[in-house]
């Protein structure tokens, strides 16, 4: 009975994930090796194309910069939130959760209004006399990064607030009572204890921005394509399905590599897990 229940209860979900996710994704990847020109021909074509490798490097660059900025902003803000008294803390958390639960389209759209040619930033800079002609800020790497940081900072804040609140108060007090100055406590006690959480946050933001579609579509346009928008364009505009599958395979490999390497590092660096 127990044996039946144990496997039987997990069976529907196992079948669903296997047949509807694992198999389709594996088929997609498998089709990239079936080209008449050679097993790896679509990959050599990808890496020999300056246009496509540029998009890959741009995507990696944007994802890395977004992760770095979100880490710094998120950690400092979470640090402040963790010290707040109860009521203020709830308000701060609501203010971070609200954008997080608002859709990616809405949040990217906001930056379209702000950064557009006739947008708020241009019109205020013009009326202040700082610039004499509107700047074209949209469809640049900068506009994509700003919108992505905006997208992921709330996630980072919430993840890290949880991590910082989990650090036992005694450890911090012990450090202070042993004479460490606040700045030393921060760098020598709090930061090392937060490293595993920082890595989790960094992985979430990196994979999220590396695989994003809506934000580069709206704020990057044709000029600043990323892997996600390139995949969509190949699949649905030029109907180059093998090309699209190649991009999909590269995205899967990079994502899984980053996740597994970083979670291994996180486990090793956890000072509490000795």
């Amino acid at each position: 009975m127990n044996k039946f229940a144990k496997w039987g209860l997990t069976l529907p979900a196992t079948i669903a994930v296997t047949l509807l996710l694992v198999v389709p994704v594996l088929i997609t990847i498998a089709t990239t090796f079936g080209e008449p020109k050679g097993v790896f021909s679509t990959y050599t074509a990808f890496f020999n194309s300056g246009f496509r490798t540029n998009i890959l490097y741009r995507t990696l660059r944007i994802a890395l910069i977004t992760t770095a900025i979100s880490l710094v902003i998120g950690f400092l803000t979470a640090y402040v939130i963790a010290q707040m008294p109860g009521r203020l803390k709830s308000i701060a958390i609501i203010a971070a959760v609200f954008p997080l639960l608002t859709g990616v389209v809405v949040r990217s759209f906001a930056w379209l209004i702000i950064l557009g040619k006739n947008g708020i930033l241009n019109s205020s800079l013009l009326s202040l006399g700082i610039i004499s002609e509107p700047l074209s800020m949209l469809y640049t790497e900068g506009s994509v990064i700003v919108a992505m940081v905006y997208l992921f900072v709330p996630l980072m804040i919430l993840t890290l607030t949880g991590v910082l609140e989990g650090i036992p108060r005694d450890v911090v007090e012990a450090s202070a009572s042993l004479g460490a100055r606040p700045i030393a406590t921060f760098f020598q006690v709090i930061l090392p204890l937060a490293v595993p959480g920082l890595i989790v946050g960094a992985v979430l933001v990196f994979t999220g921005s590396f695989t994003s579609y809506a934000t580069p579509q709206l704020l990057g346009g044709e000029q600043m394509m990323m892997m996600g928008t390139l995949l969509y364009q190949r699949a649905m505009v030029t109907f180059d399905w093998v090309g699209a599958s190649t991009i999909a395979a590269i995205m899967v490999v990079i994502t899984i590599a980053v996740v597994s390497i970083m979670s291994r590092i996180a486990r090793r660096l956890n000072p509490m897990a000795v």
Binding site: L21, P24, T28, T211, T255
Partner: peptide, 16 residues
């Protein structure tokens, strides 16, 4: 489903 890039999953579902 959260490990596999969403856009890859969507495309693979359409395809297969």
């Amino acid at each position: 489903p959260i490990l596999v890039p969403e856009i890859v999953f969507g495309f693979s579902l359409l395809k297969t």
